[in-house]
Design a protein around this nucleic acid. Structure first.
Length: 570
RNA sequence: CGGGCAGUGGCGCAGUUGGUAGCGCACCUGCCUUGGGAGCAGGGGGUCGCUGGUUCAAGUCCAGUCUGCCCGACCA
């Protein structure tokens, strides 16, 4: 490839609306241009990276026995209605009508389409297991697209779906996919962790997210530093152990004045009691009802966990009016005793050991002290609704948990029969009976990998591509003007390397050396072949290594050999 | 959806009390230069987001509207 014929609009200045490193660099390096909010042109340099990643993904998917196919982007509403997601998916689903006013959605994921395909085409257990995948544009109408391709409304995703005749077979294949995913991210040169996660709108029980470690990541992961344990989970899912106070002898329940003391902080200071001796009562509205979540004062409620327990997707803290209706008093004094209306109590297990604690009295400016559950109010069951935090202890090995931030680049799910049962996707089992497919699904955000790779691999000069996903492996920089001696040698080296099937680009533009160096560094090509007068006297050129800044002097006659050595032996 | 900010050549920005739309980068032509975004000379490119209003006169003032960005809420 000749750079003079390439579209490479690099910028000296950082665009005003880019916030994170990868977004800035993708724009400056001439990879990305915005078309509309969360919608982008991927310029040629970017597409080369995308294709490299796609090919790694294809290779690993094929090795895992998956078959590539291509489904439509435009999908009919009926399929989404069958699964129930036409309503459940909410506003993120991009919807549209055709001229006959039939409704469609631009696919954000393809469980429905693939399940409908399998329902029609896969009839027998003999055809199972089967895994199909595609690499395709996906649409999600994000509330707030941001950070360039990190959170965009149209993006490229690899989505795979597997069909099995038993849970056991799915478990087995899930493990194969786990390995395939690990290989993919390793080959892309990413530092990542697989963590336990919540399954969100796609559904299913068991799921791992693959997180690329980065400060700019939008996800928070709680992990165990003990390598033998390896526990790691997103903050939505993470469990932990916390400090448990000694049980005390029950003291007499008392109503005390706490004038204008509402928050845990205030009441704790006022009564001179540690926060863990207080119990928070939070009222939540969900679907048509209200529930009270009880948790120790030094802990926070994890709303995702609470959603699962209440089996709802709509959950929000109750407004002041609702609080008054339930507790009979203004917000700040709600408690489990004497509630005006009986509602469901969801009690966190942090209360289990707790004795003689404080709760709101459902009366203005009053709290109860020396409250004990079972004596003063009944708790039928304890749940885990607590947000895990770094500093808590690991549930497996008791080590102190850590926290880091990550970019989610992939997720694998066990769906079970969630979709096949609803959509009546059945096959003939060995015993002659009709059974719904047991399914799994597996996604990778291809374009998000591009951004994640840049987040992890950059310096003050620009991008530093991992070799396997670099748009070009080698860039040749003749430092003199066209038709000079340097240019002729550079062209010769270019032709030599090109026939070896190496991705090489020749910077044959009629610009100064500084310009060429800056661009080569900005776009992050791993190896530069520098052809300049300085070393030419000695019949040598320099090979610059982007990552280290190191320069190796090599005889002109040995350049292509040396390049091969660098590319294939490292 | 709530709060804040902003829309002026491709990009980054300036434009004062209303009075001929400017600068840097990029682009084009020529000369010159080639180990770190060089220099000189010349040049092209704009209905100042849109609609309406005030005014002799609006990028500038007023009203409305659209779009974008940031924070929050939300989120495979």
């Amino acid at each position: 490839m000749l750079l003079s014929k390439y579209l490479l609009p690099t910028l000296k200045e950082t665009p005003a609306d880019a916030e994170i490193t990868s977004h800035k660099l993708m724009i400056r390096a001439g990879m990305l241009r915005k078309v509309s909010a969360g919608i982008y042109n991927y310029l040629p340099l970017c597409l080369r990276v995308i294709k490299k990643i796609e090919n790694i993904v294809r290779d690993e998917m094929d090795k895992a026995g998956a078959l590539e196919l291509l489904m439509p982007i435009l999908t009919p509403a009926e399929l989404w209605q069958e699964s129930g997601r036409w309503t459940v998916y909410g506003k993120e689903l991009m919807r549209m009508q055709d001229r006959h006013e039939n409704e469609y959605a631009l696919g954000p994921t393809h469980e429905e389409v693939i399940t409908a395909l399998a329902r029609n085409e896969v009839k027998s257990y003999k055809q199972l297991p089967l895994c199909l995948y595609q690499i395709q544009d996906k649409f999600r109408d994000e509330v707030r697209p941001r950070f360039g391709v990190m959170r965009s409304r149209e993006f490229i995703m690899k989505d795979a779906y597997s069909f099995h005749s038993s849970e056991k077979c799915l478990d087995n294949y899930y493990q194969i996919m786990y390995e395939a995913y690990s290989n993919i991210f390793k080959r892309c040169g990413l530092r990542f962790r697989a963590v336990l996660a919540d399954s969100g709108a796609i559904g299913g029980d068991n799921t791992h997210e693959f997180m690329v470690l980065a400060q700019s990541g939008e996800s928070r992961v709680i992990s165990c530093p003990n390598d033998n344990c390896g526990y790691a989970a997103t903050d939505e899912t993470a469990k932990s152990k916390i400090f448990q106070p000694e049980k005390e002898e029950f003291l007499e329940l008392r109503l005390v004045d706490t004038p204008s003391q509402k928050s845990i902080e205030e009441v704790s200071n006022f009564l001179k009691l540690p926060k863990y001796k207080l119990v928070k009562t939070l009222l939540y509205k969900y679907d048509d009802g209200v529930a009270a979540a009880l948790i120790r004062g030094d802990c926070e409620v994890n709303e995702i966990k609470l959603k699962h327990i209440l089996n709802t997707i709509n959950l929000e803290l109750a407004d002041d009016k609702t609080i008054e209706e339930i507790s009979g008093c203004e917000p700040g004094y709600a408690g489990p005793l004497n509630l005006k209306k009986q509602i469901k109590l969801i009690c966190d297990s942090s209360l289990k050991q707790l004795t003689n604690f404080v709760v709101g009295a459902n009366e203005k400016d009053k709290h109860y002290i020396n409250v004990n559950h079972q004596r003063d109010f009944k708790i039928e069951k304890f749940y885990d609704i607590r947000l895990a935090n770094p500093g808590d202890r690991c549930i497996n090995c008791d080590a102190v948990l850590e926290e880091y931030r990550g970019i989610e680049v992939g997720q694998i799910f066990k769906l079970g029969t969630k979709y096949s049962a609803k959509m009546n996707a059945v096959y003939n089992a060995e015993d002659g009976k009709l059974k719904p497919f047991v399914m799994g699904c597996y996604g990778i955000g291809i374009t998000r990998i591009v951004a994640a790779a840049i987040e992890q691999n950059n310096d003050e000069k620009g991008i530093v591509w991992p070799l396997n996903i670099a748009p070009f492996s080698v860039i040749i920089l003749p430092l003199n003007k066209p038709n000079s001696e340097e240019f002729k040698i550079a062209e010769k080296i270019y032709n030599e390397i090109k026939i070896k099937n190496i991705d090489v680009v020749l910077d044959d533009r009629a610009v100064g050396p500084g310009f060429k160096f800056k661009d080569a560094e900005l776009i992050g090509i791993p190896y530069q072949i520098i052809v300049g007068a300085k070393s030419l006297n000695e019949q040598s050129i320099e090979i610059g290594i982007r990552k280290t800044g190191e320069k190796i002097l090599v005889k002109i006659s040995e350049v292509s050999e040396k390049i091969e050595e660098l590319l294939y032996e490292k």
